[in-house]
Structures are given as structure tokens and as C-alpha cells.
Write a protein that binds this DNA or RNA. Structure first.
Length: 257
DNA sequence: AATCATGTCAACCGCAGTGCG
DNA sequence: CCGCACTGCGGTTGACATGAT
């Protein structure tokens, strides 16, 4: 399987690799090691571009690559990692044993994404598919002191369709705002699928009484800070400045990835 | 048996990041 | 500082395989 071969304007061969080309590439790399991809094809006697050689090596010829069917454990790992990392396939591949980013990406797009959708899970946010928002945003003048009468809009810091990054940020913020800074706690938060969900009411505002997960806290992203309302007492909240959230998020991300 | 839809997977393309002169 | 070359990444494409009708 693959693409037919053809030659581009520069005389470079494109499309499917032959066994002979594979052999040449492997032999050259085994003898000389990985070096300059640009000059490698010529030195290896290949009529290919350096990019093509690199891709072929990394995704197919490199030793130790696992191929074929994904195990249920691998699929579960991909789903969990995707919930945290989003479409960062290279980062996901680094966490998986000997799977290439291309392989993982293909499997996600062809199989896992559809499976999640079928099961009522949004494959991008990893949340149940309901008409709502994951990241809550607000404008300062519209935000009252009580979360129950808070009027929220979707046009301040984040789009109304939360990206994987926004979800990640929300989870990070939950951990940071909770003032429990140890990394194990943060990692648990990142790997926990349950995050605050807020339903939109008829007026386009948000109701806080429709969230998933009893122990989850309710986050408000305001202009200069993140407010974390306690589940135990809806009148009580803690604030964390954006700068602090961003700084600590960076540190956590550095540690994790 | 023929046709169509869907799945699989290798490979390409374009863009962003990085390093170097 | 700037421009160029190179590398790495993510999105997309294309061809074959397989299953359903």
C-alpha cells in the first residue's frame, strides 16, 4: 500500500519506497549514523529528498518500531494522553513505547476519534457532548460577587469552543488555584478526566448548578485573575492572578514535558 | 459479482522553530 | 539583527484493503 512513484521537477523521486531504497538507506545509516539529512540521499545513492529519507527512517525503518494493531492498553493511553496534550502527536509518541507519531495520529483520526464520538464524548475536549462550555469566561463589569448571579459571556479570553489547550489550562488553573502546589497533585488533576462543566441557560449565561463531578471546583476567568469557587460554599472563592497562573503553568509544563 | 463506503497507513506539504553565518 | 538552511511537527492526501449492500 502507498502512493505510486513519480518524479518532481527537480528529478527527485516521490511516492512509495522500494525494498532496494530501504536497504540503501538502512545500510548507509548503519554505517555512517544519522547526520545531515539534506546530503544523505546523495551519499546513500538515493534519488530522494532529505525530508523523504528522514520520514522513511523515523516512521518505518528505525529499529524497535512497533507496528500493527494497537492494544486496548495502548488505545487507553493515547486517549488519556490526548486529553492532556491535545494533537501534539510527537509528545504523545514520546510517552508511548516505540510507536511513531504518524502511527498514533493515523489511529486517532481513523479509529479513536470516531469511537469517542460514537460514545458521546467530544474527541477534542474529552467531555460529554452537550451544548455547553468547558472554560468559563467573564467580563469584569458583568461579574457579580456571587457565582449564582454571575452573568457570563464567551468573548473575553477564550473562544466559546474550548480547545484542548484551554481545557489543559483550566485543569492547571484548578490545581494552582487550589493552592496545592505539589506536582503529584497537579499530575493527578491533569490525568483526571473530570473537569468543571457549565451549562448555558436560556439567556446565554451560565448556570453553576449543572456541573459534572461533585468534587470539582468552579473556575471563573476574569480580566486579571482566576477565581476558584469552592464546591462546599458557593459564596466563598479564592483568587489567583493570571501572572501567577501562567508562571506556575509554565513550570509544571516544563516539569511534565 | 459489482459497486460503494469506510478503514488503514504510508507519504507529502506547508509552516514554525532553531541555529548559524 | 537579519536572512537562510535545516529540522521537526501536524494536517492532509492518495491508494489499497475490507466490509456492506
Amino acid at each position: 500500500m502507498g502512493r505510486k512513484t513519480w518524479f518532481d521537477d527537480d528529478g527527485m523521486k516521490k511516492g512509495e519506497w522500494t525494498a532496494e531504497e530501504d536497504q540503501k538507506l538502512v545500510a548507509y545509516i548503519n554505517e555512517h549514523g544519522l547526520c545531515d539529512w539534506r546530503s544523505l540521499p546523495e551519499r546513500a545513492g538515493l534519488q530522494r529528498g532529505g525530508k523523504s529519507c528522514r520520514l522513511r527512517w523515523l516512521n518505518y525503518l528505525r529499529p524497535g518500531i512497533r507496528r500493527g494493531k494497537f492494544t486496548p492498553q495502548e488505545e487507553e493511553a493515547i486517549i488519556k494522553l490526548h486529553a492532556v496534550l491535545g494533537n501534539r502527536w510527537a509528545a504523545i509518541a514520546k510517552k508511548m513505547e516505540n510507536r511513531t507519531d504518524n502511527d498514533i495520529k493515523n489511529h486517532w483520526n481513523s479509529c479513536l476519534k470516531k469511537r469517542l464520538s460514537k460514545n458521546g464524548i467530544d474527541p477534542m475536549t474529552h467531555e460529554p457532548i452537550i451544548n455547553n462550555l468547558t472554560v468559563t469566561t467573564t467580563n469584569e463589569e458583568e461579574c457579580g460577587s456571587s457565582p449564582t448571579n454571575t452573568s457570563l459571556t464567551t468573548e473575553s479570553h477564550f473562544s466559546s469552543s474550548p480547545s484542548g489547550s484551554a481545557c489543559l489550562l483550566n485543569k492547571l488553573a484548578a490545581g494552582i488555584a487550589s493552592r496545592q502546589h505539589d506536582l503529584d497533585r497537579i499530575k493527578n488533576i491533569l490525568l483526571d478526566r473530570k473537569i468543571t462543566i457549565n451549562d448555558q441557560d436560556e439567556e446565554g449565561g451560565l448556570r453553576r448548578d449543572q456541573k459534572i463531578g461533585e468534587e470539582d471546583d468552579f473556575l471563573i476567568w476574569d480580566d486579571g485573575e482566576v477565581r476558584r469557587y469552592m464546591d462546599t460554599d458557593p459564596m466563598e472563592y479564592e483568587t489567583t492572578p493570571y501572572d501567577s497562573v501562567l508562571y506556575e503553568s509554565t513550570q509544571i509544563l516544563d516539569y511534565l514535558f
